[in-house]
């Protein structure tokens, strides 16, 4: 037998310490914080959850964060992304979608910031129809395009600049937009002790 055991021992103890500090203690602390905060968020509806899954499957999180920093750290507030995030904003999030990239803007309060469903549908169909400098991919495969002088279907949206071109959102697109509409993390949580009064 050789001295491998020293490295087995050393390796095990450092990783255990890491689990202690980074998994267990934060869990305890965060759950204590959340216990006293009635989140301003409400649970996602079934459709919003389906939209959330579409958000994950199409990799939105690789370009959009859902965490707002304190003004000390960046211009988040000045850009209109709302107040700094709190742990209680995420109690219904599983898996979490905090993200760490801002190739696109933060989406923490997109539901309050851009409440027009039509805007979102057109933007998903082709972002550059509405935002000329955008580098976001379009999602034309979520839409059917119809040619008609009048609205071909309830819910159809006319493409700006065209008189007879309409997009008809699929169920997937509707759910995705519903999910975005639900993101309103700009309301403040109330303390549990005060909420009951």
């Amino acid at each position: 037998m050789n001295k491998a055991y020293i490295f087995v021992l050393g390796g095990t103890s450092t990783i255990t310490l890491s689990i202690f500090l980074f998994i267990l203690v934060p869990r305890l602390q965060v759950s204590e914080i959340n216990k006293d905060a009635v989140s301003a968020q409400s649970p996602y509806t079934e459709n919003e959850l389906k939209g959330r899954k579409t958000y994950i499957d199409n990799g939105c999180l690789y370009c959009h964060s859902q965490q707002v920093r304190d003004p000390v750290a960046g211009a988040d507030k000045a850009f209109g992304w709302g107040r700094a995030s709190l742990p209680s904003d995420y109690i219904y999030d599983k898996p979490h979608l905090l993200g760490t990239m801002r190739t696109g803007p933060d989406l923490s309060n997109i539901g309050s910031r851009q409440p027009s469903r039509d805007w979102h549908h057109l933007h998903f169909y082709n972002p550059r129809l509405l935002v000329s400098w955008s580098i976001m991919p379009g999602f034309p495969f979520f839409y059917e395009v119809a040619t008609s002088s009048e609205s071909p279907k309830p819910g159809a949206i006319r493409i700006p600049g065209k008189t007879d071109q309409w997009i008809i959102p699929s169920e997937e697109a509707e759910n995705l937009v519903s999910y975005l509409m639900s993101l309103k993390r700009d309301r403040d949580p109330v303390k549990a002790s005060e909420a009951t009064k």
Partner: peptide, 30 residues
């Protein structure tokens, strides 16, 4: 030797989804 011990521990804990949600999951994720 150390890497062969560390990786399985990391992989199993981070993938135990029943353990994590919300901010705690973000911490475990990163």
């Amino acid at each position: 030797i150390a890497a062969l011990i560390w990786f399985p521990v990391l992989f199993i804990i981070a993938n135990s989804h029943f353990l994590h949600s919300g901010v705690e999951q973000a911490i475990a994720n990163w």
